[in-house]
Amino acid sequence: MDLSQLLQNAIDKQASDLHIIPGYFPSLRINGELYQLKTYSLVTPENSQAMIMSILNDQEKENLLANKEIDIGYEFNNNRFRVNIYFGKNNICASFRLIPIKIKTLEELLLPAELSKCSQFNQGLVLITGPAGEGKTTTLASIINDININYAKHIVTIEDPIEYVYSPAKSIVSQRQLHRDTHSWNIALRSALREDPDVILVGEMRDYETIGLALTAAETGHLVFSTLHTISTPDAVNRIIDVFPPNQQNQIRAQLSSVLKLVVTQKLLPRLDVVGRVPAVEILINTPAVSSLIREGKHHMMDNVLVTAEEEGFMFFEKYLLKLYTEGKISKQTAFAYAIRPKELEKFIR
């Protein structure tokens, strides 16, 4: 079994992921569905180890054996893969996420024009949220590339690992990879503040120290982008505040209410009209009304704002599902399967 052949197969079939797990056939995820490639033989522990270890350098092999998992970026035939290598039943397994060569525009990604405002902000915090594998990184890359192409800025990215690579344009871009270019998120973020950045991309805000540094960066005149794994835009606000000890939460509410610009929640839904997936989004904008709710801890009232302030650019997830349904892009069954608030959706789709 040849890794190059499997990777090329993933590219040719436009798969999002390739899985190599001993005891199973190699598997591809295409448009959200998982397919085992039964034209190949079952992956053996020996196959898996030989293929996967061949793409690691000595330091990466050492890290894998010490930590039992590792994330790396891997280039193959002018394509990039984000690779997570891990142990399962004492065997080496891997998931390869295909990163498209071309960074698509928001329009090409079928995302609402409202998101183009993100590249025009001069400072503050923008969050792209949603479950894993729902296109958050791709959306962020599109926004960052728009800044790169249209504005003269210094963009610093901190990623684990580097996924999309930005071509030289009007901006200058410093891309830093965890464990290769820096030892930790926090060290890299502190360092970024001394690197004359205009824009900082933090791949993921994983703990209160990273979140605290990101808020400080946004507060001190930088435009900060990051991601969170939350299911709705109000949940993202809750997650940030709840990460901190109770005695710090009032301070964080005040800080977040001041620096937050916009929160987007995104999911990819199977299309009804053509083969593929279409994004569904929720957009929360930090207007004075939202800022007041954040500061006062009244996060439960944000759903009301999302429903009633559409003319200000807000988008309620269930209303976006209604839009996709009425346009014939998704089925009624898909709309209800992916709804964040099914009871609210019942008011729009009967």
Rank of each mutant, 00 (worst) to 15 (best):
L3W: 02
L7D: 01
L7S: 00
L7W: 01
D12L: 12
D12P: 04
Q14N: 15
Q14C: 10
A15I: 05
S16F: 03
D17T: 05
D17Y: 02
D17W: 01
H19E: 08
G23S: 08
Y24I: 13
L28P: 02
L28V: 06
N31T: 05
G32R: 02
L34H: 10
Y35D: 11
L37Y: 04
Y40R: 06
Q49T: 13
I52T: 02
S54I: 00
N57Y: 03
K61F: 03
K61H: 10
E62H: 15
L65P: 04
A66W: 05
K68P: 01
K68R: 15
G73R: 02
E75C: 03
N79L: 03
N84E: 01
Y86S: 08
Y86N: 06
N90S: 13
I92L: 05
C93P: 07
R97E: 01
I99K: 01
P100E: 06
I101D: 12
K104D: 13
K104Q: 15
E107T: 12
L109F: 06
L109G: 09
L111D: 04
A113Y: 14
L115P: 01
S116P: 09
K117M: 13
Q120G: 12
Q123S: 15
A132S: 15
A132R: 13
T139W: 06
D146H: 14
K153P: 05
H154Q: 08
T157G: 11
P161N: 10
P161W: 03
Y166G: 09
S167F: 11
P168G: 10
K170M: 13
Q175Y: 06
R176H: 12
R176I: 07
H179T: 15
H179K: 14
I187H: 15
L189E: 00
R190S: 09
A192C: 14
E195L: 05
V199T: 06
I200C: 07
V202M: 11
E204H: 10
E204K: 14
I211H: 02
G212H: 08
T216Y: 10
A217Q: 00
A217F: 03
E219Q: 12
I231A: 10
I231F: 09
R239E: 04
I240N: 04
I240S: 02
I241N: 04
V243P: 08
P245G: 08
P245A: 08
Q251H: 12
I252D: 00
R253P: 06
Q255A: 07
L262W: 02
T265P: 08
K267C: 09
L272Y: 15
V278F: 05
A280S: 13
E282A: 07
I283S: 06
I285A: 03
N286W: 00
V290G: 01
V290N: 01
L293R: 12
L293W: 07
G297I: 10
G297F: 07
K298G: 12
K298E: 15
M301A: 14
V305Q: 05
E312S: 10
F314G: 00
F314C: 01
F314E: 00
F317Y: 13
E318A: 04
L322C: 04
L322Q: 11
K323L: 12
Y325E: 14
K329C: 10
S331W: 12
T334I: 15
A337S: 15
I340C: 13
L345W: 05
F348I: 11
R350K: 14
